[in-house]
């Protein structure tokens, strides 16, 4: 049985570790999770991204969620941010497309042109 103090310590340690992970992350993948995104399947897209990162043992990418980005017709929409590089937005990202983007963009460093969506 753990005491409350133990749990607090675990929490603090975990938070510190998460902070380091976030700081060291090379890629930040954001999944738009507004009503529009969710209705278009963003939850499964996010599950696929997490699963693919885990399978490939990619440690330097973090996945976060955000609300509607204002391009509801392009959902599910994801953005990949990388230090010193332009943030790339991808539209109509099904789970299969998400796996392809992880393989091409994150692993091989090649933007998947077919699914790039220009926000401007």
């Amino acid at each position: 049985m753990k005491t409350l103090a133990d749990l607090r310590a675990i929490k603090e340690k975990a938070k510190a570790e998460m902070a380091t992970r976030e700081k060291n992350a090379r890629f930040r993948i954001t999944v738009a999770m507004g009503t529009c995104g969710i209705a278009a399947g963003a939850r499964d897209t996010m599950s696929a991204i997490i699963d693919e990162l885990n399978k490939r043992n990619i440690q330097d990418a973090i996945v976060t969620q955000t609300g509607c980005l204002g391009y509801c017709d392009q959902e599910p929409l994801i953005q990949i941010a990388q230090a010193d590089k332009q943030t790339i937005s991808y539209g109509k990202v099904s789970p299969e497309v998400a796996r392809k983007i992880i393989a091409e963009h994150i692993v091989n460093g090649k933007v998947v042109a077919d699914y790039v969506f220009n926000l401007s």
Binding site: L7, I10, K11, K13, A14, K15, E17, M18, R21, I50, D51, L53, N54, Q59
Partner: peptide, 20 residues
């Protein structure tokens, strides 16, 4: 959610390992 964070810290593994 602290259960997940705590286990990741205890086992020194990635949070993604704990998703499944």
């Amino acid at each position: 959610s602290y259960w997940m964070l705590g286990r990741a810290a205890e086992q020194d593994c990635s949070l993604y390992d704990l998703v499944v």
